Simulated assay, not measured.
Amino acid sequence: MKHVQVLCPVFREDEVILEFHARLRAALEPLRDRYLFSFIYAMDPSPDRTEEVLQGLSERDPEVQVLVMSRRFGHQAALIAGIEVCDCDALVMLDSDGQHPPELIPTLLAQWESGAQIVQTLRKDGGETGLLKRSASAAFYRIISRIGSIELQGGAADYRLLDREVVTVLREQFGERNFFLRGLVAWVGYRVAFVEFEPRKRMSGTSNYRASILINFAIQGISSFSKVPLRLCTITGLVIAAGSVLAATLMVGSYLMGTATAPGWASLLAFVAFLGGVQLFFMGVFGEYLGQVFDEVKARPRYLISRRHGEAVPVAARKKELQQ
């Protein structure tokens, strides 16, 4: 029997986490004759009862393990923590708010059994997602695919299956502090299959992803996989410099020909203000890349686990028990 672990990041889900877990187990129940399942809930400390609920769940269900971070490190750090503690033949990761349907997991496993080492889901947003958010998301995927060193499929979600080999590579060969997991999964290659899905309505509450978080997420993704913004700064600087030389040449020619006119202060001030804005923008671009380097040089841990509830599933013993 193959061991499949399901990794779910959690934050402020005390009202729905038990319902989600029941739904998750129900989706996997028909597959238990072929797979051994266990569950990892990686959570940021929540101001509600999420940890208390998950602790009780781990005490009742020996297949559940809970990782509690020392502070809020974010969604990506929770996924990384799960990747680094898992021990399985395949790892499935999905959000615990109900938008990623657990009922799709059998399809992911079928693709895995057919030879895919990465089964990546593609989110197909409908009318439940605002037009602005859909447009911004589509623009991000187009931009990063055109200027980045990866081909990131539109709608790629953090709902995927990873084979043991891919998990080992991500765990042992990547030490980046600014971890853009969607990009890294696309970058490593291997045999990939894609499965489309329509997101479900959240089981409760609203998304914890504010606009500022999504913007930062996009900037981090682009700066992690593309140098094009830096090159655009260089090209723009050269174009402005060439334009300035041309303008100076024309003014000198006009003076020598006796057709020079009095300079306009308004146009001069506008041009100076334009150059100042361009310079500040370029400094911001440089700052983003320098910030990435700064984080890597400090080499701080990407996350810290403060508490654990439940024990890791003794896979070998469970397999032997089931076979008997």
Rank of each mutant, 00 (worst) to 15 (best):
D89N: 14
Q153P: 13
R164C: 08
V315P: 05
V195I: 13
C233Q: 05
T259F: 02
L256S: 00
E196G: 14
E321Q: 15
R123S: 02
V119Q: 04
V6A: 05
V252I: 15
L79T: 04
L214M: 13
S204P: 04
E13M: 05
F179I: 07
A262V: 14
D44I: 07
K320L: 13
T121S: 02
L322Y: 05
H21T: 00
E63P: 09
K201S: 13
F180Y: 13
A262Y: 08
W265C: 03
A110W: 10
G253W: 00
P229E: 01
W112L: 00
A317I: 01
F179W: 12
E288I: 15
D33Y: 06
Y303T: 03
S38A: 09
E15Q: 12
S135M: 09
K319W: 00
E296D: 09
F197K: 06
G130V: 09
Q99H: 00
K319A: 03
A27H: 08
T50C: 02
A81W: 06
V195M: 05
E176H: 11
G115L: 11
N216D: 13
L91N: 03
A317S: 12
G189P: 11
R146E: 13
D163A: 12
R160L: 13
G258N: 01
L54V: 01
D163I: 06
V85C: 08
Q153A: 15
Y289L: 14
R307V: 02
G56Q: 04
T50S: 15
Q99D: 06
G74C: 07
Q220S: 14
E321S: 12
